[in-house]
């Protein structure tokens, strides 16, 4: 993978997450009924940071869950190998709550579509909102984010890499150019198999 351009350093990511935390509470008019669901894997770490921020200024522990959407993906028939499934752990009932989905990158919108279906199987939230650190465009579904850390216009050939301390050793956002590829095997998927576990980043 080629060297990337740094779009956000740790301070910039933290500033964005602090702002999103405030926006979420403001939008909801407080923390009543509020729950956060981080999408595996990097959305979970970002959701933890947002939870910690809300705790700082509201002195309230907003319930936090983790969700893996692999089993709800719409492209499993097209992948060469089954992606790794991570834990789903929602330690609360979503029915009647205001759910904020937290993910690292919003791209095609397919991950969010899967998350909406999965959450609906757990119950009937009063409202579902979406918070992402980076919106890079290229939507394939009518989905938009309610809270965005940074809008980054990208080309198809580029890749956004969000790094979190727990998995990558640092907190940052990089823009990568995809390495040149030969013709894709067996058409169908526009994305190479190597990216399957990175999902739509």
């Amino acid at each position: 993978m080629a060297e990337g351009t740094r779009l956000m350093d740790e301070r910039a990511v933290n500033r964005a997450l602090v702002r999103i935390a405030h926006e979420i509470v403001e939008e909801n008019g407080g923390t009543d009924e509020l729950v956060l669901i981080g999408i595996q894997r990097r959305g979970v770490q970002l959701a933890e940071t947002i939870q910690a921020e809300i705790r700082k200024f509201e002195e309230v522990e907003v319930p936090l869950g983790a969700m893996d959407i692999t089993l709800y993906r719409d492209d499993l028939q097209q992948v060469a190998e089954q992606p790794i499934v991570e834990e789903t752990d929602l330690p609360f009932d979503v029915t009647g709550r205001v759910v904020v989905i937290v993910d690292d990158v919003l791209f095609t919108g397919r991950t969010v579509r899967a998350a909406l279906d999965e959450i609906t199987d757990f119950g009937r939230p009063r409202k579902i909102l979406l918070a992402v650190l980076v919106d890079r465009g290229h939507r394939e579904l009518p989905i938009r984010a309610d809270f965005v850390g940074k809008n980054v216009p990208t080309s198809d050939a580029q890749q956004i890499k969000v790094k979190v301390r727990e998995l990558d050793g640092e907190l940052a956002v990089d823009l990568l150019e995809r390495p040149a590829m030969g013709p894709l095997p067996r058409a169908a998927s526009a994305r190479p198999p190597a990216d399957l576990n990175a999902r739509e980043n």
Binding site: D68, T70, L71, Y72, L76, I84, V85, E86, E87, T88, D89, D117, E118, D121, F122, G123
Partner: peptide, 20 residues
């Protein structure tokens, strides 16, 4: 065995079903 771990939780859900 590792793949079995996340599947345990599905049987604890109220709707015990995923569309995979």
């Amino acid at each position: 065995l590792d793949t079995s771990e996340p599947f345990k939780e599905i049987s604890e859900r109220r709707i015990k079903k995923v569309p995979v």
